[in-house]
Amino acid sequence: MKKLSLMLLVIFAAALVVRAQDDAPQGAAAASQKQAQAEAVERGRKQFVGTCAACHGEDATGGRGPDLIRSSIARHDKGGDLLGPVITGGRPDRGMPNFPFNDSQVGDLVAFIKAQIALFDLHTRTPGAYPNDIPAERLASGSVEAGKAYFYGAGGCAKCHSPTGDLAGVAGKYTPVDLQTRLLYPAGKLPNATVKLTSGETLTGVLQLNDGSYVAIKDKDGWYHSWPRGAVKDLKVEDPLAAHVELLHKYTNADMHNLFTYLVTLK
């Protein structure tokens, strides 16, 4: 769990770094800056746990002391300008002692608090904010037996997939959340199309567009072709995900949990 939250922190601290600047730095420099920022957050977390958590909670959501996630001072702080004086000067009127941290330590604490705020503010549908930190044991709440039965029976998965073939070791390939998403719908595969033209010619390739007015494909050599729908006598679209689409409407909540619990055993 600790390792996973560290990973998350790295990701969100990086997001912060990028936002804080007017222009995203390029390539290697950016990567090393991200890394440095993540390290600062982690140092800050240790200090926070050691010094501040007793009053503000390990996750900074407060306790005896105020909630820092909802703190106006913490949110308006830029580079320690507001938090720094409070940490080092304390708030004697409210019972907060002062802590004689140096600038670098204050910087780490601020980095941690800002990363915590970003973590709580995170909208899960934001690109890149995918909740990859959920552990498998939390999701595997179904029955392996029932999942296996579904796989070979009602689900019809075994018609295309095999636990010793394409799915061998699948649980090791994806994070638990990714595995669950992908078993439900492994998006990203474009349909194949066979285009029979009014001229008699037939072409096959990956479908790029079929909007009623135009049909476009990319052939096996990577070349793009398009036709007005009227020039296409017959269009056969073969969606490799058709079975998954069909199944999506049939899965029950229990099916999902059972199937996941079974697939997680394929390590």
Partner: peptide
Amino acid sequence: FAIDARTGRQI
């Protein structure tokens, strides 16, 4: 940019 000259969509 490579663009479909029929539809204006980027290739």
